[in-house]
Design a binder for these strands. Structure first.
Length: 432
DNA sequence: TCTGGGGTCCTAGGACCC
DNA sequence: TCTGGGGTCCTAGGACCC
């Protein structure tokens, strides 16, 4: 048996935990650039705010319906997540932290009173962190996800599922008829692993509900789609195909990418932005104890706006593999100069580090020893200073950036205060 | 004016090898 | 001009997740 415990409207719930005045009103948390909604309270969902909906489309709701928009505070959410996860771990012997707001608990076979224990854990999480959660319990991860969805929706949308399944839904305690009923009420696209594309293709074949999907022969799922969908079908049929990943897999890629507040049309601000991304990425790389052998840098125009399209990436090999900010910034800027072409309104850029390897120097790996040792001290000192005094206190200068620069990127950097958010002092703050 | 950021996995197709 | 079959590796692109 698996449990899936996850926080309801997680980022909004984190904000609410410290600002009770946000309870009961429509609230959303916006993305980095205040670009779009990334977390919505139930009230905001009821107003029709969609996940990922751009902020500028929400003006009316802000003005006329009292929608409150908050800029994100990812450090807070990370802290709250840690607390929630350690409490959730109390439900069973093994835990997989699947995302910032979800964890699977495994090896629950034979645990007595599982449903009651699940209620107790969610009550404890609510009491100690202020985060409301729902729990799905089932013999496969996919069904646990479904049960979690049922637990949430039956509370949020009365009538969608039987009311007694609110908050905690245990597949093992359902009758065959109840299971069929639940699967039949759930759209195939709601199932974990079935996204927009595949659900459209399934619909063409007459597979509309989770029940239809569960009744699809596994081989047909494989032949018509892929082994991924086949696994999903089997899991819906109660055959566990996905095990618990208790230790996080080694990172394969580290990225830092951003959309710009304004389109960028010239090279200097782009160099500045990309240098910043490479710096952030290098910090993450060192924090993970890794070096990168390859760096991708990309820039592109907005897919939402008319005009000439530009979408290019450069791949720079790093030999020897490095975690040195100077080396990574240089590589990123070099790549950028290769792909850059004037005449485009660039909306987004980023740096991705790939082919990661452990930072420890292997015995006999003489080639790497000198540079790694030298870089190490300086970078370590930089990380410490930046951790203590704030991001970017010490940084690597990029070549070729003019002193004065009135372009979009800098404007965005200076506009630290979000375009629209509820001011912190307008809302009472609970005890920390 | 304004549309997230960070990931993973799978597959198809090309290059290359014997 | 005719022109095998099987395997591996790599990469790009697609699809998905939160």
């Amino acid at each position: 048996m698996f449990a899936l415990i996850d926080g309801n409207n997680f980022y909004v719930s984190c904000e609410r935990a410290f600002r009770p005045a946000l309870q009961g009103i429509p609230v959303i948390v916006l993305s980095n650039n205040d670009g779009c909604a990334i977390s919505r309270s139930d009230e905001a969902k009821a107003l029709g705010v969609k996940m990922g909906q751009p902020f500028f489309q929400l003006r009316d709701l802000v003005e006329h319906k009292g929608l409150v928009c908050l800029s994100p505070n990812f450090e807070l959410y990370g802290d709250m997540s840690d607390r929630m996860m350690s409490l959730a771990a109390g439900l069973g012997p093994t835990q997989e932290i699947y995302s910032i707001d979800e964890s699977f608990i495994g090896d629950l076979d034979g645990v007595r009173d599982l449903t009651r224990r699940a209620f107790a854990i969610r009550a404890r999480i609510l009491k100690w962190t202020g985060i409301p959660t729902c729990v799905g319990l089932a013999p496969t991860k996919t069904l646990a996800k479904l049960c979690n969805h049922v637990a949430k929706d039956s509370e949020r949308k009365p009538g969608s599922y039987p009311a007694e399944l609110q908050r905690v839904c245990n597949w093992a305690e359902l009758s065959e008829q109840q299971r069929i009923d639940i699967l039949g009420r759930t759209a195939a696209g709601e199932i974990w692993g079935v996204g927009r594309r595949i659900s459209a293709q399934l619909a063409e074949q007459g597979v509309l509900t989770a029940l239809d999907l569960a009744r699809l022969p596994a081989q047909a799922a494989r032949d018509g789609w892929s082994v991924v969908l086949e696994r999903t079908v089997r899991e819906l049929q109660g055959v566990s195909c996905m095990s618990l990943e208790t230790s996080p897999a080694a990172k394969k890629q580290i990225a830092c990418t951003r959309s710009f507040g304004y389109p960028i049309t010239t090279l200097p601000p782009l160099i500045e932005a990309v240098s910043e991304f490479a710096t952030r990425a290098a910090e993450k790389l060192r924090a993970a104890g890794l070096r990168a052998s390859a760096l991708h840098v990309f820039a592109h125009t907005s897919p939402f706006r008319p005009g000439p399209r530009f979408y290019k990436t450069a791949l720079i090999q790093l030999q020897p593999p490095s975690s040195d900010t100077k080396a990574l910034v240089n590589a990123a800027v070099r790549g950028l100069r290769i792909i850059y072409e004037p005449g485009y309104q660039l909306s987004k850029a980023g740096v991705m580090l790939q082919d990661l390897c452990p930072a420890e120097v292997q015995q006999g790996d003489l080639l790497f020893q000198e540079p790694v040792r030298d870089q190490g001290k300086l970078m370590e000192a930089m990380d410490k200073v930046n951790k203590r005094f704030g991001k970017g206190t010490v940084h690597v200068a990029s070549t070729g950036v003019p002193e004065q620069d009135e372009s979009g990127w800098r404007m965005r950097q200076e506009r630290r205060t979000p375009r629209y958010t509820t001011k912190i002092d307008e809302i009472p703050i609970a005890r920390a």
